[in-house]
Nucleic acid binder design. Structure first.
Lengths: 337, 337
DNA sequence: GCCGGGCACTAATACGTAACAGTAAATCGC
DNA sequence: GCGATTTACTGTTACGTATTAGTGCCCGGC
């Protein structure tokens, strides 16, 4: 900047003025042009470190995620956050701390927070791959912080989570609307907030049409393809099998497809299936296309950044809707055509 | 730091000394302890911006990726880079520039580079989701830079790519070793470096066992499930159908599975299939498990960071092997049991 | 009794920017 | 023609750190 000033024959102050308030600084256009030319010639580029020191603002946001590698959710959340940040001229400093149930996770997370604070980020996003309730780590209070796909006991920390309950209610209602009354729910006991909320939404939606939930049809297993196969086999061997299955996630549903196919049970004619997640590589690609609830990962990623940039706007704790993605895996139950 | 110094009754210089060279500074243990106590009491934390200005080094690496959202590859690359960076005490400043064939992509990429340079990153990683050859953007030369999953014409820029040719050769040999001679290759004309290299590896491996490539069996389509269905249908309707298919990627293979299943063609008994990518949600989950080549995304991510940290070590342009992941989709051709 | 040298520190500076508090000259109003 | 205002700038400082070049003091040796 000093070089630019020298070349343009003005002071460093003037250059700074032109760079930051070209309109209101009262520097005549001729001088401004001279300075712009000098900037070009010198190949000057602002040093944002120095700028940040002066302004006490880095235009950088820390993003801590518990496990980036093993799930496709991270993509969408990061992308949502990245896009919103980019639009506002902010950049994301990303740290992945590994699986949240790893013994060292707390320590790593703490170190990550320290690293971000030392780098003077303007705010911190703490993201969970699986919707859960977490203990607020020390340090998060030192800067504006937002929880992504997680909540905490702390009453004053912003957070956003998917509306699991309503999504499950809607998914189930989609089935009851088409006449299904005997509906199974494949779920999981994976630690986290998702399954209880979805199970409750499922129950309430079944009962809302005057039907009862047959506990034989609520199965807990791993929410994997393998688990889906096991559970679906049980269901289809049941003396009074369900006409529809609502699965905790799409992998589960994929397992259901495989078993149904093996046993000659047609989807959707003989068995309707609704999934959860809208996994790109599954839901749209298996045959028939899987009707499923899409988790609003991208939107939640956007939300947290907007919340950091404008903390006053909107609610402190948001719950985002999960749109129903309608494909071809649901039909009325057999015999009702 | 000034507060810490005041509280410990020493100068700021002494605090800095204790923080950075506790051993060689010649400050007696008693004073060091006093300073450490003061740091604790004050809750002092280094301001790395100021440190960076002084040292002209931010311990931050810029990571530009062309599209983080639509592929699961990004995960593994970012994670590899993140892990290597973390281990070395570096953090990643990540920018996603969107699809590389978008009209504004060049501009966005340029802005991203400027942003990173303004933030004084120590180095830049330019990552491509799909292996391709790119024009080196201006600005990359201002800092140490490395290309990830991409190469360029520039002779002096470090880069790492998967060894597509050898991987295809190995995949094909895996089939010829088991007796297959009539092998199809489903590939694509998606712009990028991958398909030509893989096609060549395929050809050479077939010819290496004295067989010839039937051009009827080399099909170009979109490398999607839909494309896989189309292509496989053509192949299975061929008067002299192949006994094995080598697919450009796993989605393609998934489409092949679906059509085979519909037509009652058993995998692997009637038709062997080898994929490419080892997509978590496909390869391990479809039945039977898909034998496929895993792209070394994680390892390439690590590689680029190590290259930035120690530019002298190893070759300038690396080619990483793709391990063969053996599952259950390959058997000897029918009639040779 | 004096000098050299080690010990335990410290003062001052630079990194690159933004902004406050000026200042000199030109212009205006009456 | 003169004070007041405007125009077009500039000098200086502070942000928090790492480092260089000291400084004062004490102790040992002769």
């Amino acid at each position: 900047m000093r070089d630019v000033a020298a070349r343009a024959g003005v002071s460093q102050t003037t250059v700074s003025l032109v760079l930051n308030n070209p309109a209101t600084s009262g520097i005549p256009e001729s001088t401004q042009a001279r300075i712009r030319a000098a900037i070009e010639e010198v190949g000057y580029r602002t040093n944002r470190l120095a700028r940040a020191m002066r302004l006490d603002r880095t235009d950088t946001i820390g993003f801590i995620s518990d496990d980036i590698a093993t799930t496709p959710y991270a993509n969408r959340m990061i992308r949502g956050a990245q896009d919103a940040a980019w639009e506002a001229g902010r950049l994301l400093l990303i740290v992945s701390t590994g699986a949240f149930d790893h013994p060292d996770h707390q320590t790593i997370e703490q170190t990550a927070i320290d690293q971000l604070l030392e780098r003077q980020v303007d705010g911190i996003v703490l993201a969970a791959m699986f919707h859960r309730v977490l203990d607020l780590p020390d340090g998060l209070r030192e800067k504006p912080s937002v929880l992504l796909n997680a909540s905490s006991e702390a009453p004053d920390i912003a957070s956003v989570v998917p509306d699991e309950y309503s999504a499950a209610y809607e998914a189930t209602s989609y089935l009851t609307d088409r006449g299904h009354r005997r509906i199974a729910h494949l779920t999981t006991r994976y630690p986290g907030a998702a399954w209880t909320l979805r199970l409750q939404g499922f129950r309430d939606a079944v009962e809302a049409v005057g039907a009862t939930v047959d506990e034989d049809l609520v199965l807990f297993d791993e929410s994997t393809t393998e688990g889906g196969r096991r559970a679906t086999r049980l269901l289809l061997e049941h003396p009074d099998p369900p006409t529809a299955i609502f699965c905790h996630n799409d992998q589960y549903a994929m397992g259901a497809y495989q078993v149904a196919n093996d046993l000659g049970v047609r989807i959707p004619e003989d068995l309707s299936v609704v999934g959860f997640d809208d996994q790109q590589l599954i839901a749209a690609e298996i045959v028939p296309g899987l009707t499923t609830m899409r988790l609003p990962h991208y939107e939640m990623g956007q939300w947290v950044i907007q919340k950091l940039l404008d903390p006053e706007a909107g609610p402190l704790n948001a719950t985002l809707p999960c749109p129903l993605i309608e494909r071809a895996s649901v039909a009325p139950p057999a015999g009702r055509g």
